[in-house]
Amino acid sequence: MRTVNKIIGGRPINVGSIKVQELLPNNGEFFSPFLVFHHGIAKIEEHIPIHQQGVGPHPHRGFSAISFIYRGGVHHRDSRGNNHKVYAGGTQWTSAGMGIIHSERVPEDIFDHGGEQELLQVWVNTPAAHKMDQPAYYPATAEETPTIVTEDGLTIVRVPAGNVNGTKGIIPTFTDVTTAMVDMKAGGHFTFNFNASHNTLVYVLKGKITINATHVVTTKQLALMNNDGDSFTITATEDTILFVGSGEIINEPIASHGPFVMNYQTEIMEAFRDYQMGKMGVLIEE
């Protein structure tokens, strides 16, 4: 069985109008291929125009920026002409490639969906061979996402990307990366099977679980797993919402600054230059 290396908590930061818990980087360290792991919750303000709430236009290069949406919705726009909304249970996967500008706003009908926005924002590294590919945007609604429901009905596992026990996601990735959005009722349990060489993490948005009946992980805690086995079992000790990610380690140098993740510092300087010159396009929000 794969064992737990450590369990960590986050630090509070602000991203746009969203209050965020930052779990990765942890003490300046990534967990390849996972670079950034943010848990954001926003209560929508009725006295502020909807189009001003959320995260405004900003650039990316060299990785995939992914929103896993748990409550409310996200209105994605980008400099490649994509203009799309996804609601709870869905995913918005932006492969930044050589450069894209996007915004992640609040949809106009947010109050019809509870008036709150909760999501995970996860950055997954792209290998050097594909960092300068053309950008791409891959949305997946909850209904479109391949889903596992256990026989007892206590566990639901949605698989936007990768492979969970034979259920394959619909979003393409450059390396072997699996993401799973999991809902568990108290008493539910599920055994995940991943390549032992892949880095694997488990995050609890709300609730409490045990991993292999030995380690307790509770609300807003992230478990980083060891690379010493290919399976582990999660059991919910109360109703729980959680996320599981596993991915092939990218053994390449990382140079990062702000919204850009490349391999060398000169490439970061080139990214800023290209952005300033308009080579990543223009996004004017309507």
Results as ranks from 00 to 15, higher is better:
4 V>T: 14
9 G>R: 10
10 G>K: 09
11 R>A: 15
14 N>A: 14
15 V>N: 04
16 G>R: 00
17 S>A: 10
17 S>G: 14
17 S>C: 06
18 I>C: 10
24 L>A: 01
24 L>I: 07
25 P>A: 07
27 N>K: 10
28 G>D: 13
29 E>C: 03
29 E>V: 09
30 F>Y: 13
32 S>A: 13
36 V>L: 14
37 F>E: 04
39 H>I: 11
44 I>F: 03
45 E>L: 14
46 E>K: 15
49 P>E: 09
53 Q>A: 10
54 G>Q: 10
55 V>S: 12
56 G>L: 12
56 G>S: 14
61 R>G: 03
61 R>K: 07
67 S>W: 10
68 F>L: 15
72 G>K: 02
72 G>V: 04
73 G>M: 13
73 G>V: 13
75 H>L: 14
78 D>I: 04
80 R>F: 11
81 G>H: 03
86 V>T: 14
96 A>P: 01
97 G>I: 10
105 R>D: 11
108 E>D: 15
115 G>I: 08
115 G>C: 06
118 E>S: 06
123 W>Y: 00
124 V>Y: 08
126 T>E: 07
130 H>P: 00
139 P>Y: 12
141 T>H: 09
143 E>N: 02
143 E>K: 04
143 E>I: 03
148 I>P: 07
149 V>H: 12
149 V>A: 06
149 V>L: 14
150 T>R: 00
152 D>Y: 12
152 D>K: 06
155 T>P: 04
155 T>E: 06
159 V>D: 01
170 I>E: 08
174 F>W: 12
175 T>C: 12
178 T>A: 03
180 A>R: 03
189 H>T: 08
193 N>R: 13
194 F>K: 00
195 N>F: 02
196 A>N: 08
196 A>C: 01
199 N>Y: 05
200 T>K: 00
201 L>G: 13
204 V>C: 09
205 L>S: 12
207 G>E: 06
209 I>C: 05
215 H>L: 00
221 Q>R: 10
230 D>P: 02
230 D>K: 01
235 T>V: 11
236 A>M: 04
239 D>A: 07
242 L>S: 02
245 G>T: 08
246 S>G: 11
247 G>E: 05
249 I>R: 07
250 I>S: 00
252 E>H: 02
253 P>R: 02
253 P>I: 03
254 I>N: 03
256 S>N: 01
256 S>R: 11
257 H>D: 13
258 G>P: 04
264 Y>C: 01
267 E>W: 02
268 I>G: 01
268 I>F: 04
269 M>G: 05
270 E>N: 14
273 R>W: 08
273 R>G: 12
274 D>R: 05
275 Y>M: 08
276 Q>M: 14
278 G>Q: 13
279 K>A: 03
283 L>F: 00
